[in-house]
Amino acid sequence: MANTKSAEKRNRQAQKRRARNTAVRTTVKNAVKKARETLATKDTTKSADAVKNATRTLAKAASKGVLHPRNAARRIARLAKAAKAAKA
């Protein structure tokens, strides 16, 4: 338990950040999952939109500091590679 006012404030801030980061991570996971599912169906128009949306959410999460930039870049590259393979 926090003993000082500043420690209590830091704790409140950490709780807010943790809640925000969890929400962003969940949206990222859902977007990537949806993209992978649409790629499996071979529907090119829906899959292109889903991959674009997942790429956007991953990039946003990286810019906000929720994900490490290289982690996001790696996931984006894998999605793009899967999209290219599904297209061919």
Rank of each mutant, 00 (worst) to 15 (best):
M1D: 09
A2R: 04
A2P: 12
N3L: 14
N3F: 10
T4V: 10
T4Y: 10
K5V: 09
K5T: 09
S6I: 05
A7T: 06
E8R: 13
K9T: 07
R10C: 02
R10H: 12
N11G: 05
Q13A: 06
Q13K: 01
Q13Y: 01
A14I: 01
Q15S: 06
K16F: 03
K16G: 06
K16Q: 11
R17S: 06
R18A: 13
N21S: 14
N21Y: 14
N21I: 04
N21W: 11
N21K: 07
T22R: 13
A23Q: 11
V24M: 14
V24C: 03
R25D: 09
R25N: 11
T26F: 05
T27E: 14
T27G: 05
V28S: 00
V28N: 01
K29M: 09
N30W: 04
A31R: 01
A31I: 02
K33H: 10
K34H: 13
K34M: 11
A35M: 06
R36K: 13
R36L: 09
R36H: 09
R36E: 14
R36G: 05
A40R: 08
A40N: 04
K42M: 10
K42C: 04
T44E: 10
T44D: 09
T45K: 11
K46L: 09
K46H: 03
K46M: 09
K46A: 11
S47A: 14
D49S: 13
D49P: 00
D49L: 05
A50D: 04
A50N: 02
V51A: 11
V51D: 07
K52T: 08
N53F: 12
N53Y: 09
N53C: 01
A54G: 02
A54H: 03
A54M: 04
T55S: 15
T55K: 15
T55D: 14
T55N: 15
T55A: 13
R56W: 10
A59S: 15
K60C: 02
A61K: 05
A61I: 07
A61H: 05
A61E: 07
A62H: 11
S63C: 04
L67M: 10
L67G: 02
H68E: 12
H68Q: 12
H68N: 14
P69K: 13
R70G: 13
N71R: 09
N71F: 06
N71P: 01
A72Q: 09
A73E: 14
R75F: 03
R75T: 11
R75L: 12
R75E: 14
I76L: 07
I76Y: 07
I76G: 04
A77E: 14
A77W: 11
L79C: 03
A80C: 06
A80P: 01
A80S: 15
A80Q: 15
A80R: 15
K81R: 14
K81C: 06
A82T: 08
A82G: 07
A82F: 07
A83L: 08
K84L: 13
K84R: 15
K84P: 03
A86T: 07
K87W: 00
K87C: 00
K87I: 00
A88R: 15
